[in-house]
Structures are given as C-alpha cells and as structure tokens.
Design a protein around this nucleic acid. Structure first.
Lengths: 155, 155
DNA sequence: GGTATCTGGTTTCATAACGCAACTACACAA
DNA sequence: TTGTGTAGTTGCGTTATGAAACCAGATACC
C-alpha cells in the first residue's frame, strides 16, 4: 500500500503534481524565488520540521528543480538554488496567487499583491491565448493526443 | 500534532494551497472540467479510494469550488458541479500542464496536448504582463503590501 | 589548541492521513 | 421481491508528517 504516484501517468497535470504537487515543495520554491538559499533559512521562514525539509529538498534536487551549490559567502556549507526548471514554476505560483486574489473568501487577509517593478501596478491576469493571439475561454480549447507520445493514456 | 494549515497565513499562494494544494483535489477539478459529475465516475476515472473521494468532495464543496446539484438525468442521485470559483482554477491547471510540457524528463510519455478548438494548434504559453501590456520576466516584478489588508504578513 | 556555538542534518516516536476491502443504505429495474 | 447499481461509511493496517532530541562537522571565541 503506497501513496499513489502519478509518474507513469500520461496526464501532464498529474506528472507535474507528482513533482511539485506537495504542500511544502511549492512553498519552498516560492521562498527560493525570493532569494532564500540556505537550509536554516528555509526552515525558519517556513516553520516546517527539519526532517521534512530534508526530504523535500532532496526530492526537489532529484527532480532537477533545485541544485546544490557551494555557499556564496565562502563558507564550507552548501546552498540550494533554483534551476531553469525551478524558475519555470513561476506561472503556476502566479496562477495560484491570482486565484486567491480573485476568489478568496477573506481577501482582506491577503498580505501582498504582485506588481510590476516599473510602475508599481498589479500585474495583469494570466490569460490563455491561441497561437494567433485570440483570447480563449472555457469551451474554446480541447485536448489532442500528443503526436510524439509513445503510449496513449487519458489526459 | 496536526498537519499544517495555511488558512490564516497572509500569503495568497499558501491560502490557495490550503484549498486545492492537495494531490487529489486538483485532479478532481480537472475531471470536473472534463464534464465528470458523478461520484462513481470520479472514483472510476481517478482510481482513488471511495472514502478519500468522499472527504475530498466534501472539502471542495465546503470551499465553494464544487456544489451539489440534483442529477441531470432525472434520477434521485446528486451531482457535483464546478462553481465559478472552481472554473477559476483553469489557469493553475494550464500552468501545471505547460510546466510539464516544457520541463518533463520524459516528454514522450505525455499523452495529450492542449489546443485551441478552432485551429487545432497548441495554445500559447501563459505569459505574465503588466497592465500596459509589457511582458514581464524574472526581475520585473515585486511584492507590495496589500492596501486593503487588515494584518500584515509575509507573502 | 580547546571549547562553545552554529549549521545542517538524522533518529525516535506519536499521531494523522491514506488506501484497501468489507459493509450498509437507498434507488432503480425486472 | 429479488437483484443490481450508486453513494457512501466503517475498520484496520501502512505510510507520511511533525515535534523534539540527538549528533557531526564547521565556525567563532579565547
């Protein structure tokens, strides 16, 4: 009896969730985007148990989302820094943030808003567009089998 | 010792994760977007235990993501349908999907691609833009305290 | 050099969540 | 009324999570 893993599933959403669909992993990445690099820093800011942090960091490194690097301050310790794959989750975090901003039952409890640095104004809502730039709504999309796929599953 | 809840946290990402940051909830919403409405359908498609599904569905209803409705086929059973808040997670799912498409180690295992119905071509990558339409990259954004916030926390 | 402290973990143990299977209650069909 | 399908609930064993104690190597302090 194991917790379900979706690694072998054909659905890309399930595959993502298998790597970052965890309560802490997403928040660790958020902190890393803020510039947090050291074990102790993650631990203090997130307030999670150290054993859990150890496991999560290791998993993120294994998945190529973080990598270890020698400490930038010259000490013998190591740091955890985001890979390009790690930086790639930004849209997911932005989407989560915007969902909360739009639908949260207690919006006055939301502490921060994401703005563009140049003008200090909130960023625009993420929007789904076609290749030629048309805005796509609920019924305007569909799923097609991936032509490059080896095996076919639901998605 | 309880599993951590982020409901009181000021970070909107944490607040989202508290509602949908669960392995199954996201997939349930995905299926609901596909048109799945009935308990048994969710159970069969996702292959999760029925007791877990019961708990998840109840939580999603409590959070206003799903609502129950009388069955559309006239039977006495009930159905679970997405609310507007539930439809609002589409960008999150799209972001997860695109992250997988871009960074997955075994892209040939991905079964489906999201295309626009009209032309059958893959949708454009989600992009972050400022109010006036400039494309925003890594360092072009920052967080500001929410002027409407009651209490201030990290975010 | 010797000792205290910090950093980055590992270990231990209790509890909560998960997963399976068996069971139940009600609806519907014959 | 007997059977089948739907929508759960219950019981129980396994796994994941969390707090706190423990520990080794690096650093700082004298």
């Amino acid at each position: 009896m194991k917790r379900k893993s979706f690694a072998g599933d054909g659905c890309p959403i399930a595959r993502s969730l298998d790597e970052i669909g965890d309560w802490w992993s997403m928040l660790i990445i958020r902190e890393a985007l803020f510039g947090v690099r050291r074990f102790g820093e993650f631990q203090k800011k997130l307030g999670l148990a150290k054993n859990i942090l150890t496991v999560r960091l290791r998993a993120l490194v294994d998945h190529g989302i973080l990598r270890t690097a020698p400490a930038s301050d010259g000490s013998a310790y190591q740091e955890y820094v985001l890979t390009p794959k790690g930086h790639g989750v930004v849209p997911v975090l932005v989407a989560l943030r915007q969902w909360s901003e739009q639908f949260d039952d207690a919006p006055e409890e939301i502490a921060t808003i994401l703005v563009d640095r140049e003008q200090g104004r909130p960023v625009r809502k993420l929007e789904l567009r076609s290749q030629d730039g048309r805005l796509l709504g609920g019924g305007d999309t569909m799923l097609k089998p991936n032509p490059a796929a080896k095996r076919r599953r639901r998605g």
